[in-house]
Simulated scan of single mutants.
Amino acid sequence: MEYTLQPDEHVSDGIKRIVDGKIERGIDHIDEGDDVHETVHEVRKRCKEIRAAVRLVRPVLPTYKRENVHYRDAARRISDIRDAHAAIETFDDHLRPAVEARGALDDSTLADIRATLVDRRETMTAEQDLERRLAQVRADLVEGRDRVPNLPIATEGYDAVAGGLRKSYKRARNRMGEAYEEPEFERFHEWRKRIKYHRYHTRLLRRVWVGPMKRRRAELKQLSDIIGYENDLAEFEMVMHDEELFAPATREILNEILTAKRSEFHRQGRPLGERLFAEAPDRLIDRLGAYWTATHEYDPAP
């Protein structure tokens, strides 16, 4: 089921349809997934999509806090294992190529680094009993699905989504300024989360004007990926030092490369972020409201 509100449906019906569909997909991932780590990744994405959908209507959904916390906590059951797998992906996709380009470490050392990361993930998977945790997440999804038909969304039309859209956009815009004012991990991590919520909201509202909204979503995806790569490198760096992974000399070399790569992603994200969040929140809400009106009131075939 498409993750987009349709012009011919009430907002309340659309949000319920979307949430129910994402819950069903999450359950299917758990029941049918062959690769357990891919299952973890996909289930967490479904929880984020559900949370974004309820955030879009949060000012008019009295039970918003309950629903948001429910799916947040469900995803947290498997977040440590996902992070351990993400460390391997970060090494493969970003860190290893940078190390090889510099000729900083030999092949044997690189193989040892990866083996350490894989062992760490597998140990965590066994200690935390991943199958049991996925069963708990499945139960969480089933419980949430039972509430979907009665989600008390209080109004319809653009009024139902304008407040949540404004909040997600304003927070992303503000977090950008804070991140570049003081470029610490926590601030970029928070900005990344807000970018992703605004990106999901752009996807949910795609039908108000398909072409421009599709382009905006693509650029938000690009920005989310850039800042996501920076976040992944920062988390790798923290884990590497906190758990004293690898030999001290290896950590020193990796730390130098991590710092350089993070700075590179900071620079890449700035111009894109400045363009995407140039508008004041009220102006963006008014502009998308005009798109909504044109589509829902005047377009015979939106």
Rank of each mutant, 00 (worst) to 15 (best):
D8L: 13
I15T: 06
I15C: 04
I18V: 08
D20W: 11
G21R: 09
G21L: 01
E24N: 08
R25I: 02
G26C: 10
I27M: 14
D28E: 14
H29M: 03
I30P: 12
D31E: 13
K45L: 01
C47P: 05
E49L: 14
V54L: 03
R55N: 10
L61Q: 02
P62L: 05
D83Q: 11
H85A: 14
A87W: 01
T90P: 14
F91C: 03
H94L: 14
L95Y: 05
P97D: 00
R102C: 03
G103A: 08
D112P: 01
R121T: 06
T125L: 12
E127C: 02
R132Q: 13
A135H: 10
D140L: 10
D146N: 07
P149K: 08
P149L: 06
N150D: 15
N150T: 10
P152A: 08
T155K: 06
T155Q: 11
K167S: 07
S168V: 14
K170A: 12
K170H: 05
A172L: 13
R175T: 13
M176A: 09
G177Q: 10
E178R: 13
E181D: 15
F188T: 01
W191Y: 15
W191K: 11
R192S: 00
R192P: 00
R192Y: 04
K193E: 12
L204Y: 11
R206N: 13
R207C: 03
K221F: 05
D225P: 09
F236I: 07
M238H: 11
V239C: 00
D242H: 09
D242W: 10
T250H: 05
R251N: 02
I253A: 04
I257N: 02
L258A: 03
K261N: 07
R262I: 10
S263R: 15
E264N: 03
R267P: 02
L276P: 07
P281T: 06
D282T: 10
D282K: 07
A290Q: 14
E297K: 15
Y298V: 00
D299A: 03
D299I: 00
D299M: 03
P300K: 00
A301I: 08
